[in-house]
Design a protein around this nucleic acid. Structure first.
Length: 511
RNA sequence: GUCCUGUUAGCUCAGGUGGUAGAGCAACUCCCUUUUAAGGAGUGGGUCCUUGGUUCGAGUCCAAGACAGGACACCA
């Protein structure tokens, strides 16, 4: 795999270094500060009389990003996670012969080096480390992409994220923010008294959402298992068991299409809260956003592409009302099945035969309302037909105590007061099973153990799921989920396919 | 799944109407001790995504396929 001419060149340098007695992959490092700290501590060197202080000696390390060789001296830029620093390497400051035979000939852009020296400021005014000792820590045998344009090819950036991270520092920033958001989320819920739990990712029955699961196989048990599509049913079992506030931050897997907002595996937080209802969830969600904005130091008017999202106010509108007030669907249409069908038909929107009123209202919402919800908006009171796990409203049994939060036209959270009537739950599962039998392959499956759990009594509670990836997209102004996932799902590279085919052929022959 | 666009050197990109494959950076050989995408002289480097087809001749035209990006559909 290293047949490329550039790699061959670099491999011969590795060989040469070994012959000269230098280990090109040494483990012995003496770094005693980071680049950011070096810059910070020595910012006063600008003001010193001769703009240097030979008594301050530091050892920093990093990857060479720029290499400007000018005969007997060179300027390089090295980068560590904290920042980038210029170093000045002059022949006469180093051990005799090192500059010409080792450094100049064998060290290049991409290599990771450690340097020791003192700070000074160049004629052009840049704080620089004057090197008295340079050690090659790691020889890179693949060359880095071009220094000015960097790496542009999206495919390369996703497949070889390490290269993207080396070349594009703003990418690192996005993932720092992502990490912070997850950590803040964890802290927020812990501070509220929630217990973090981990429930199975391999489910005997996929449940808790309408989605197609991935299937895998357990050899010892001889049974298929499903990668979870949601942790919901397990978390509610824990509420039955007596935990009163639990949350889980982790991956879900859905065997569906991929696009700018869907990756086959994605991260969510789900939390369940006993003796609370969906109104309490609305309040805690607002508080959660406050907390995030505060700790991430974000302005309440947040740019998102061409949009500007105003996070200072979260609106709250019942779904039916949103159809007319936001979607422009006449009120008498929105509550009448036949009129909705006619309304959709007039606009050339096809829907499946036999949809019930609630499902049609859902269609209207998706079609006419969803993209218009730019500023954070809670849509409440979902029809019971499209909310198989939510509790009915006591005031109006046609709708559920549920909301979804929309920002920038995208669903960010889904929450409801949980259904805890075991008989109602059983009947809803049965309806889902019937739907599945008549061809809806995303309808829920019967989960008898879950119904059994409810039969022991689950305290009234409310639960919510928040899509962390989409949330990170909003808060970091990214427009595809791939840009907030370190390693987004990609089709196999053609090489992989060929290798696999070969492997299979060999297997056939062996058998 | 559908439609549109793209795939040329390690990277970023050029290559009217078909006629021996180009630049910058990077690499290699030199010059150069305060540079800023350092500069100067020279050299090497290609499965033009793949497979077919049309043609005397294909990076270029046609077809199929692969991968990617975007839009739509599906989906929470």
């Amino acid at each position: 795999m290293f047949s490329n001419q550039y790699i061959q060149e670099r491999l011969s340098k590795v060989q040469r270094l070994k012959e000269l007695g230098y280990n090109p992959y040494t483990n012995e490092t003496d770094r005693n500060t980071t680049i950011a700290k070096f810059a910070n501590v020595n910012s006063d060197v600008h003001d010193l009389e001769d703009r240097r202080d030979e008594k301050r000696i530091y050892t920093v390390a990093g990857r060479i990003k720029f290499f400007r060789l000018m005969g007997k001296a060179s300027f390089l830029k090295i980068e560590d996670e904290s920042g980038i620093l210029q170093i000045y390497v002059a022949r006469d400051n180093l051990e005799e012969g090192f500059y010409n035979t080792v450094f100049k000939k064998n060290v290049e852009v991409g290599d990771i080096v450690e340097v020791t020296g003192f700070p000074f400021v160049t004629n052009k005014g840049e704080l620089t480390l004057n090197v008295s000792k340079l050690t090659l820590l790691t020889k890179a045998i693949s060359p880095l992409p071009e220094k000015y344009h960097g790496i542009q090819d999206k495919e390369l950036r996703y497949r070889q994220r390490y290269l993207d991270l080396i070349m594009n520092s703003e990418v690192k920033k996005t993932f720092h923010t992502r990490s912070k958001i997850i950590s803040l989320t964890r802290r927020f819920f812990e501070d509220k008294g929630f217990l973090e739990v981990e429930t199975p990712m391999m489910h005997p029955i996929p449940g808790g959402a309408n989605a197609k699961p991935f299937v895998t196989h357990h050899n010892a048990l001889g049974v298929d298992r499903y990668l979870r599509i949601a942790p919901e049913l397990y978390l509610k079992r824990l509420i039955v068991g007596g935990f009163e506030a639990v949350f889980e931050i982790n991956r879900n897997f859905r065997n569906e299409g991929m696009d700018a907002t869907h990756n086959p595996e994605f991260t969510s937080i789900e939390f369940y809260w006993a003796y609370k209802n969906y109104q309490d969830l609305i309040e805690i969600t607002k508080e959660y956003f406050e907390y995030l904005f505060d700790h991430l130091d974000l302005p309440k008017l947040l740019p998102y592409g061409d949009l500007e999202i105003d996070f200072s106010e979260f609106k709250q509108i019942p779904l039916i009302e949103s159809l007319s007030s936001i979607g422009g669907v006449p009120e008498d249409v929105a509550t009448d099945k036949d009129k909705i069908l006619a309304y959709l038909k007039e606009r050339n929107i096809e829907v499946e035969e036999g949809m019930n009123l609630g499902q049609l209202q859902g269609e209207l919402f998706d079609e006419f309302v969803e993209d218009k919800l730019i500023n954070p908006t809670f849509i409440t009171e979902y029809p019971v037909e499209i909310s198989p796990l939510a509790r009915r409203s006591d005031a109006n049994p046609d709708v559920t105590e549920r909301f979804e939060l929309f920002i920038a036209g995208k669903e960010i959270a889904n929450a409801f007061s949980e259904l805890n009537d075991p008989v109602d739950q059983l009947e809803r599962f049965e309806a889902q099973v019937a739907a599945k039998d008549s061809g809806d392959d995303e309808a829920h499956e019967m989960d008898e153990d879950f119904v059994r759990a409810l039969s022991y009594g689950m305290s009234p509670c409310a639960g919510q799921g928040i899509g962390i990836d989409r949330l990170v997209m909003m808060l970091t102004n990214q427009h595809t989920i791939r840009d907030v996932l370190l390693f987004p799902a990609m089709r196999p590279e053609s090489k992989e396919v060929i290798a696999k085919e070969l492997e299979e052929e060999v297997e056939k022959k062996e058998n």
